[in-house]
Nucleic acid binder design. Structure first.
Length: 454
RNA sequence: GGCGGUGUAGCCAAGAGGUUAAGGCAGGGGUCUGCAAAACCCCGAUGCGGCGGUUCGAAUCCGCCCGCCGCCUCCA
């Protein structure tokens, strides 16, 4: 299997260090609702994780929450509530959105404010080795001590410096970044050897990765907008602290969601919330939209595109509702070749677009075979299994209950009797009535099938 | 300005030197059908931003140009 490693700038064979693949994915800063750009990133890493498991790996997945930072403090003070309460609320909402999208939970979700001890330990270690310095209660990382700085984002120091107009005087060097920030009056703080303060943004990820996954982890993921400076800084501080190179073996970055010819981002305000979109479309449609293009390409959000995905998702779902014809068919649809092609596509840097094409071809084959009376049960199982690797549930949006299912089934069978007696008016009235209630009836040579309208 | 990405049918989107350029949505024709819907079959780029070049052969490699986007400040 090959994966594109940002560090190498090309695809590489994937060989984890041990039995368990260690995977760290950068989480959110909890000060606002999740938007579909977040959905994109977390759906993608969810699929990567599901596929690795499908290929026989065990995975240990850590994802952080930044629950203290400037924006959280600012927002909280506007709302006049404690910053940690604000963060907690948005973390809960994050979980609700991501659960709805059928994104599997990570093994552990550490929070910055709960890892202060580990952060302080690392900062102390960096100070002791001379890789950091203190100034007025804050501690900065000494970038010039790390010659490899820029290796991930493929930049060099002098280029970056020449572009910088201003920098804070308290730093020795413009690119030095804060490991520990002294707190201003009224801000939340934690006691430290340098006085009251809080962790810098980058350090929490190093602290958590080292604590929960070890000095050298297999996969580190995040959006492409984190490559510089966030991940670059993580490398600098982690490798300087542990002496272990590389800190990360495979850097995986997802493309950025565009909207209205611009990057979708909290700071520009051009957002489409996850909750908002899930009111209109099924989780499968959203996932299908995201996974229809390659994970490293930018993806432009549009309602039309998700609508098209909804139609596609319906086709996949519908192929699973054919009446089983086990044992009756002389021949059986063999779906192994489809599974092979699916694996081939996914082995090539998670080519979900191609994998999805295979699912649609299998769907057509199932439909065709069902009409011909070929046994398709096994093929349906395979379709459901492979769809599951991409996180599709292929369940209808409306949750059915045994009660309503029975009523609808009864109406449908009564209508079938009417149709047999050519009572078209009554039959059509039932169909129309059910349609108004959100149930679609379809008459086929094999009988009437029904589904909830999505 | 530096670094990176990208431009493929009406729309979305794979493919990265060589059989008929995947797949989805929309559209047209047909089969089936009381009608409807679905499903299935057939059709659609002699063409892959433009111009040159390398090659027996290029969406695919090279050069130049044009367009769009990202990062370089917080961001998934």
């Amino acid at each position: 299997m090959k994966v594109f490693n940002t560090m190498a700038g090309k695809e590489e064979d994937f060989h984890p260090r041990g039995e368990v693949v260690t995977m760290y994915v950068c989480g959110i800063t909890a000060y606002d609702d999740s938007h579909i750009g977040h959905a994109m990133a977390y759906v993608i890493f969810d699929v990567i994780k599901r596929y690795l498991r499908f290929r026989g790996y065990k995975i240990k997945h850590i994802q952080n929450f930044t629950d203290i930072d400037d924006k959280i403090i600012q927002r909280a003070s506007q709302l006049e509530i404690p910053p940690l309460r604000l963060a907690n609320e948005y973390i809960e909402r994050y979980f609700a959105d991501m659960d709805a999208l059928n994104i599997e939970r990570a093994d552990i979700y550490p929070r910055a404010t709960e890892e202060i001890a580990q952060v302080i330990e690392i900062v102390q270690g960096l100070l002791a080795k001379g890789h950091a310095y203190e100034f007025e209660g804050s501690v900065y990382f000494r970038v010039r001590n790390f010659p490899a700085y820029g290796k991930l984002s493929h930049r060099n120091l002098s280029d970056m410096i020449s572009q910088m107009c201003t920098y804070e005087e308290k730093k020795e060097y413009p690119l030095d970044f804060a490991l520990w920030k002294a707190s201003k009056p009224g801000e939340p703080f934690w006691e430290s050897p340098w006085g009251r303060g809080r962790p810098g943004w980058h350090i929490e990820c190093s602290a958590m990765a080292l604590k929960y996954l070890g000095k050298s982890i297999d996969i580190h993921g995040g959006g492409q907008d984190l490559v510089f400076p966030h991940h670059e800084n993580e490398i600098a501080q982690s490798e300087s602290f542990t002496g272990q190179v590389p800190f990360v073996r495979y850097w995986l970055h997802s493309g950025i969601m565009q909207y209205d010819r611009q990057k979708m981002s909290k700071s520009t305000g051009n957002l489409v919330g996850v909750g908002e979109i899930l009111k209109r479309f099924s989780p499968d449609a959203v996932r299908l939209f995201i996974l229809s293009s390659h994970y490293r390409s930018p993806l432009t959000y549009s309602e039309e595109a998700v609508e098209a995905s909804e139609k596609g998702a319906e086709r996949l779902r519908w192929a699973l509702t054919h009446q089983a014809s086990a044992g009756k068919g002389v021949t059986t649809l063999n779906a192994e070749l489809f599974e092979q092609r699916f694996v081939e596509a996914m082995d090539d840097d998670f080519n979900t677009a191609q994998a999805i094409a295979v699912l649609f071809e299998l769907t057509r084959e199932i439909n065709r075979s069902a009409e011909e009376g070929v046994d398709i049960i096994e093929a349906q199982h395979i379709l459901l299994k492979l769809a599951g690797v991409l996180g599709f549930t292929l369940r209808e949006k409306t949750q059915s209950t045994p009660d309503t299912d029975a009523f609808i089934g009864l109406l449908a069978s009564v209508r079938d009797d009417l149709r047999r007696n050519q009572q078209w008016q009554l039959a059509d009235r039932i169909r129309k009535g059910l349609a108004d209630l959100g149930v679609t009836l379809e008459d086929t040579p094999q009988g009437t099938r029904w589904k909830y309208k999505t």
